[in-house]
């Protein structure tokens, strides 16, 4: 295990991606400590103030928005929403998709036919459109955003996990377990699942990045959390309106969003490259 850990740390994508993700996680966790201002505090005497690096009680390192709210503080608090969506939506999507993929791949037959058909139908809808329709139906808010992501993206896991389960099921060690008299449930849990987990972990990491983007898109079109609350998508939407007067607003929010998604993607790709040769 320690050896596997050291291997991972020699992969630059794992290290860089992990560092970016860790930074966002820390920002979310320590927002009250890190943020210099209350993210909702308006200072109408300092609207659209440019970034200002002097040290002092009234400094706005990344400027302010059109209501005079501190951009840095809003970015830091915005990471809470991003992390919440990434973790909750990512994990729920992974659980649902992995469970269905395992069932379909392992038991085959009618369960497989049903699940695979569902996946095909599901994937034929354009996902962003489906998300917007879903949230419009469920009402705006973070919970709807998470539900929408899970409902749309479980197929991503299901497809890959099903294929991998089919592959594992043909391996000799499954035959050996059957010959040893282990029942299907024991084989699924103890023999197949451990071989699926690394893959599910990689997909989960990538899914977390996707969830962050989807939340930002829905915030951008005003379908996520209320526009007062600090969210990156909301900030991008606002920044677009004042891009000529206050380019820092749009660019800072975009940059943070990009770095987060890049972090998840690098981490996922790095993990994939590292976990594969060890296990197969």
């Amino acid at each position: 295990m320690a050896e596997a850990g050291r291997r991972l740390l020699r992969n630059w994508r794992v290290v860089l991606g992990g560092a970016l993700v860790l930074a966002v996680l820390l920002a979310a966790l320590l927002a009250p400590v890190l943020a210099p201002y209350d993210p909702l505090d308006q200072d109408l005497s300092a609207q659209l103030a440019p970034p200002d690096w002097h040290f002092g009680a009234d400094a706005h390192a990344l400027g302010t928005d059109s209501l005079g709210r501190d951009v840095l503080s809003r970015l830091i608090w915005g990471s809470r929403i991003a992390v919440t969506v990434a973790v909750v939506a990512g994990v729920l999507t992974a659980l649902l998709g992995t469970a269905l993929g395992l069932l379909a791949g392992f038991f085959g037959g009618r369960a497989d036919a049903l699940i695979s058909r569902l996946v095909d139908i599901w994937s034929s809808f354009p996902p962003v459109l489906l998300a917007i329709i879903l949230v419009a139906l469920l009402g705006t808010g973070l919970r709807s955003v998470i539900v929408a992501i899970v409902v749309i993206d479980w197929t991503r896991f299901c497809r890959v996990v099903r294929a991998e389960t089919l592959k594992q099921r043909r391996m000799d060690y499954i035959d050996a377990a059957v010959a040893a008299g282990l029942g299907p449930r024991a084989i699924l849990w103890r023999e197949v699942l451990p071989n699926i987990l690394p893959l599910a972990l990689v997909l989960l990491t990538l899914e977390a990045g996707i969830a962050v983007v989807v939340e930002a898109i829905l915030s951008f079109v005003g379908l996520s959390i209320s526009s007062d609350a600090p969210s990156w998508g909301g900030m991008i939407a606002e920044g677009r309106g004042v891009v000529h007067e206050a380019p820092w607003l749009l660019s800072c929010a975009m940059l943070v969003l990009l770095a987060t998604v890049l972090g998840f993607n690098l981490l996922g790709d790095g993990l994939k490259a590292e976990l594969d040769p060890v296990l197969r």
Binding site: Y173, P194, N195, L197, P198, L279, R280
Partner: peptide, 10 residues
């Protein structure tokens, strides 16, 4: 084939 008869991740 003793390799494929053992579970690689256990």
């Amino acid at each position: 084939d003793p390799l494929s008869a053992l579970n690689p991740s256990r």
